[in-house]
Computed example of a mutant assay.
Amino acid sequence: MDDPLKLGDRSGLPDDLLFLARKHPRETWRGRAGLAGTGEIWLGNHDHFRAVITKIAEQLTKLSEEGETTYDSGPSIRRHVGGLLGGLDGHHRVEDHHYFPIFQRAEPRLLRAFEVLDTDHHAIHDAIDELAATTGDSLRRLRQTEGVMTSDQRFAIDALAEVVERFAPILRQHLADEEDIVIPLILERARSDPEFS
């Protein structure tokens, strides 16, 4: 049976998991005292991941449209993709092994939400594996060259762009849904326990 909450199929989380998000809507988050520390870092990390995936997509579009590489085209893509994938891996490990268990104990009604987010992490890591493999193959074909791209180099850039195009929406959906669970929980708990944040 298909899971309606599967990442890539859903357009958000169901209302029964968003009871804290209704109390603490997204437009009220920034600048709240309860967000200081963990919440601000969380949002900052997520904003960084969104910016980097956008940068990678823009870089690939520019390369494809211009049809030329510079000496730094390959290394620049490698830096951005490597930074994104390493950052996501570290971020998810801290969430899975530290924060999510604490959050589940703090608000047991969100157990299902954290199960969904954990399942997302597995799906994202499968997508990360595909992105890493395609990046490696594409960069081998692109090499560190300057000038008009060969047809093989164009195919390599297009293949990588297709993987990024599939990866970006699921990453953005996961980040938004995770924020809708985590940030309101931090704000709610910070009311009674300022140290929670």
Rank of each mutant, 00 (worst) to 15 (best):
S64E: 08
S64I: 08
T61R: 07
P25D: 06
E27N: 08
W42Y: 11
E40G: 12
R30M: 04
I53F: 05
R30I: 06
P25Q: 06
R26Q: 05
W29C: 00
L63N: 03
T38D: 06
W29L: 02
I56E: 08
R22K: 15
G31H: 01
T28E: 09
T38S: 14
R50D: 12
L35W: 03
G44H: 08
L63W: 01
A33S: 11
A36W: 12
I53R: 07
L63M: 11
P25A: 08
E58C: 07
H48W: 12
A33E: 15
L20V: 02
L60E: 00
A57V: 04
D47F: 03
T61M: 00
R22Q: 15
L60N: 04
W29I: 00
T38F: 13
I41E: 10
L43M: 15
P25V: 05
G37T: 13
H46Y: 05
V52P: 12
H24E: 02
I41A: 13
H46D: 14
P25W: 04
W42D: 06
G39N: 00
Q59M: 10
I41W: 10
T61V: 05
A21L: 11
I56A: 10
K55V: 04
I56K: 06
H48M: 11
N45Y: 13
G31L: 02
K23R: 15
R30L: 06
T28L: 04
I41C: 07
E40K: 05
W42I: 01
L20P: 07
G39K: 03
N45W: 07
R30F: 01
A57I: 08
R32E: 01
D47T: 03
S64A: 06
T38C: 05
W42G: 01
V52W: 12
E40C: 05
L35K: 03
D47C: 02
T38R: 14
N45G: 07
T61K: 08
P25C: 04
A36S: 15
T28A: 08
G44D: 04
A36Y: 13
G34L: 03
H24S: 03
G39L: 04
I56F: 07
G39D: 01
H46A: 09
V52H: 10
G37C: 12
T54I: 09
K55D: 13
A36N: 12
H48R: 15
A21D: 14
H24R: 02
I41N: 09
E40Y: 05
L43W: 03
I41V: 15
W29H: 08
R32C: 00
R32V: 01
L43Y: 03
G44N: 10
E27H: 11
W29T: 00
R32F: 00
R50A: 13
R50V: 11
Q59K: 07
L43F: 00
K23V: 10
A36T: 15
A36E: 15
R50G: 15
L63Q: 02
H24Y: 14
A51P: 03
L35I: 01
R22E: 15
K62I: 00
W29R: 02
T61I: 06
F49N: 09
F49R: 04
K62M: 04
S64D: 09
R26K: 14
